[in-house]
Simulated assay, not measured.
Amino acid sequence: MRQDLVVIKLGGASLLDPATRDQVVKTVRDYRRYDYDVVLVHGGGPAINAELTKRNISWSFINGQRVTSVEMINVIENVLFGQINAELVAALNEGGVPAIGLSGAKNNLLHCKQASAELGQVGLVESVNAEFVQALIAPEKNVVPVIAPIGIGEDAELFNINADWAAAKIASALKAKKLIFLTDQNGILDQDKKLIEHTDYVQLQQLINDGTVSGGMYTKVLTVVDALVHGVSQVRILRGTQAYDGLWSDYVGTMCKSSEVNYV
Results as ranks from 00 to 15, higher is better:
K26N: 08
A167I: 03
G187D: 03
T20C: 14
E94T: 10
S127N: 07
Y218C: 07
N63G: 08
A167V: 05
G96W: 01
L119D: 02
D35T: 11
K193L: 05
K178H: 00
N63Q: 09
N142H: 04
G123R: 05
L158A: 06
A50M: 12
I152K: 10
R33Q: 14
Q242C: 10
V144C: 06
Q83I: 08
G231I: 03
N93K: 14
M255G: 11
I208N: 01
A227H: 02
S58N: 14
V89N: 11
K220G: 10
F181A: 13
S116I: 00
R66W: 00
K257P: 10
N107C: 05
G216H: 15
Y251F: 08
F159V: 03
D37K: 11
V38A: 12
H230A: 12
V144P: 06
T199I: 04
L174Y: 09
F181C: 07
N56Q: 07
E77H: 04
D192H: 13
K177M: 15
R29G: 12
Y201S: 10
V229L: 06
V97E: 08
V41K: 01
A173L: 07
G211N: 09
T219E: 03
V144F: 03
G101T: 00
A90V: 05
V122F: 00
L207F: 07
G246R: 02
K178I: 00
D155R: 09
L102V: 06
L222E: 11
A167Y: 00
D37W: 00
A243E: 03
G246V: 01
N129M: 04
T53W: 12
T223L: 01
S258L: 13
N108M: 13
T219C: 08
I73M: 12
I137K: 12
A138C: 05
L195Q: 10
V221T: 05
G151P: 02
A91Q: 06
G43H: 01
G96S: 08
L204F: 01
G240V: 03
L195P: 09
T254R: 08
Q234K: 09
Q83S: 13
N162G: 13
G187W: 00
K175M: 15
I57G: 08
G96A: 07
E131S: 11
T223V: 04
E157H: 14
Q203Y: 07
Y244M: 10
V7C: 04
A91C: 04
D190N: 11
T212C: 08
P46D: 11
S60D: 15
E157D: 14
L88T: 12
M255V: 10
D190R: 07
V79D: 12
G123E: 02
T199E: 04
N108Y: 02
V75C: 02
D245R: 11
I150E: 05
P149V: 13
I48N: 10
N85S: 04
T20V: 15
E197D: 10
V89Q: 11
V28R: 06
I62F: 04
G45L: 12
D184N: 07
S233Q: 11
K169P: 11
G104I: 00
D22L: 14
S69V: 01
W59I: 04
T254C: 13
A115G: 03
D17T: 10
L88R: 02
